[in-house]
Design a binder for these strands. Structure first.
Lengths: 302, 302
DNA sequence: TATTTGCTATATCAAAAAAGTATGGAGGAA
DNA sequence: TTCCTCCATACTTTTTTGATATAGCAAATA
């Protein structure tokens, strides 16, 4: 059994005669006769009663006709959906988001979903390290991270915005109470809680460099493995911290607050990161295009 | 796109390599390569990433693989169900039953349904004439009727039993009160309600003949178009009737009752009737075989 | 009654498609 | 390096499919 035979069979069923079907199929009559006979032989079933003025479906033939129509329908659907998956219009997109960038991610995802509603979204939150592991294992397609200074050549990266580093403090540890900004020199001896310099946040080097330029090296009393913990330590009064402004701003209820530091310009860059292989999943490509477009529009507005 | 290409594609997806698939398919490797390429060309989609140690599905390929498995599954199902319909194990069986033979029909149908549970049953009740019309139009496959003396050669007929004709009466019109049977002579002047002699019940001729032999012709005061009406007229006291015994017995609450008539042997035969064409629907054949078997078993018990 | 017409089935030939064979390049493993 | 495996391509052979011609059959028509 093959598609040709089913196609011929359907044409005969619709035309009510073999010769009629051969005309609509634009082939001669004998081939249709033969393919039909082959199909009947293979099934071991008579599909048509041959009369002198055409053919007539048997019960078995009617059964086959019904089902073959569904078959051709699902065949068309299949081809279309495969093309859609290839084009990135349909499929699955698995994303990882760091705790701090949920806002950026959801707003971009909302726009993406409006444009590609047929793509199933899978999203998880996690630390940069966890997410990068999942990306490497192929369990995630893309990540919302912060740009890292040591970039792997196997990863693609696209900047989504700029997030200035600011000083994080609570009332108890504020080095310049009542002032809008803190001069960097005021931090010379201030105890600090910083992110472990594993470079997953990308600004450790810049931070140390700026302190060095100001003539001191920071007095780190606690190395934190993640930003929530750093905020908790700052809140507990262990010292001040340095974090991207928007991360602290994303916790509006917290007693911890930030201030810009004068003569200090280290920044964190929210980025999209993906596995940079020669083959790229269609919806990843589409998502990157959308991110590009979104970026350009925001640049134009600014 | 054709089955061969999908088959090769699936084999490659399962084997993870083209050469591996060619071995399981028992063909050389180049044909598999080529059919795959043709499929990709037609879909306009890359289905596999070629690596140095085999091939790997793309997202689009994964999509096609999922769906092609379903496709092959439904293909097998399709072939099986077509064969089943041909064998009469599956399909539709449309039956007509006259008012009086519901009992016979349902008991036979119950047995049939146990043996062929996948056949959808359609049943309707009606007068012999209505049912025969539907049979002719092809809207019914078989009928439960009474044997008619004028048989059409385009109809097949199989006797299901014997039903003696008896006298139908109510207390008011009983010609032999207190007796178990009625001598036929007692009916010489009795007013009678009889079925219209259109021969759809097959016993009109026999009935008249038996009366003639007894030396009279019946005094028919009312011609009825159907058996329920005849019973109603008898019940209303218009006269006595003649009906197959089991038809009256099927109305246990009725004040009307029957008695055998002495020296009277006209009978009615419950029969199965079907369109006798060279092509016979599979489940009709199976049903007839079952009816035959049922008949034989009843003969052996008796 | 004979003829024409419209249908299907079969035989035979021609064309197209698919499989087989041989071979080359590319990337790891010994 | 050399070997091995895998995929792709060029070319030949086999198989399948389609086209043409023709026969049989039944019904409509002359």
């Amino acid at each position: 059994m093959n598609f040709k035979q089913l196609e011929y069979f359907s044409a005969v069923a619709e035309a009510g005669s073999i010769s009629g079907a051969s005309r609509t199929l634009h082939v001669a009559q004998p081939p249709v006769s033969r393919q039909l006979a082959l199909l009947e032989d293979e099934l071991g079933v008579t599909l048509f009663l041959r009369t002198n003025k055409g053919v007539e479906l048997t019960e078995a033939g009617r059964c086959l006709w019904q089902q073959s129509r569904q078959m051709f329908q699902s065949l068309r659907t299949m081809a279309d959906s495969v093309r859609d998956v290839d084009a990135g219009v349909r499929g699955q997109l698995k994303l990882g988001v760091i705790y701090s960038d949920v806002q950026i991610a959801t707003s971009l995802l909302k726009r993406y979903h409006q444009q590609f509603p047929q793509v199933e979204l899978y999203v998880r939150m996690g630390s940069p390290k966890d997410l990068l592991d999942d990306l490497e294992r192929g369990e995630l397609h893309m990540l919302f991270l912060r740009s890292q200074s040591e970039r792997s050549y196997s990863l693609g990266e696209r900047v989504l915005g700029v997030d200035p580093l600011e000083l994080v403090m609570c009332l108890e540890t504020d080095p310049a109470p009542g002032q809008e900004a803190v001069p960097i020199r005021a931090l010379r001896d201030a105890p600090m809680c910083l992110l472990r310099s594993d470079d997953l946040w990308g600004y450790s080097r810049d931070l140390l460099e700026e302190c060095r330029r100001a003539g001191f090296s920071p007095n780190v009393v606690c190395h934190c493995y993640d930003t929530p913990m750093e905020m908790q330590m700052v809140q507990a009064g262990f010292g001040v911290g340095f974090l991207p402004k928007s991360i602290v701003a994303a916790h509006p209820g917290s007693p911890v607050y930030t201030k810009p530091v004068l003569e200090f310009s280290a920044k964190s860059y929210p980025v999209l990161v993906w596995e940079n292989s020669p083959y790229q999943v269609g919806c990843v490509t589409r998502f990157l295009e959308l991110a590009e477009q979104d970026w350009e529009e925001r640049q134009n507005r600014a």
